[in-house]
Amino acid sequence: MNGIDTGFGVWNPIAWTLLFAGALVIAWVFRVLGRSDYKRGSEQTKAFLSGNEEPEPEKLHVRGDHLYWGLVDGLAGYYRRIRAVHTGVLSDYVAWFVGVLGVVLIILALVR
């Protein structure tokens, strides 16, 4: 009733959720059993940056548009081409639309 049988396997989300919750409890127990001399807000929790002062959080924050720059840079060739397709020009949109119609028409005309 809860889960699904895909024909090749079974997915039971309730069982998965209970297992996941169990794993979280175990992780929490480990955390509680951690070092008792740890003190929040003391020198222990400050980042060590080779002896330099830690900058303000606003200056350290990695903005969203900086994430995955390496991946995007690696795919620069693909992105150059795919961005070039997204021109924002209506007549280009119509051309793609009519082009797809033409391809589908040819395929359907040829296939028996």
Partner: peptide
């Protein structure tokens, strides 16, 4: 028939565009 095929091609293109299928998704 060929008319059926032309009609189907028009319907596939028209409806797939409204659904947002690439490469007719730019809108």
């Amino acid at each position: 028939t060929m008319v059926d095929r032309v009609a189907l091609a028009l319907l596939i293109a028209g409806l797939a565009m409204k659904a947002g299928a690439v490469p007719m998704h730019m809108w």
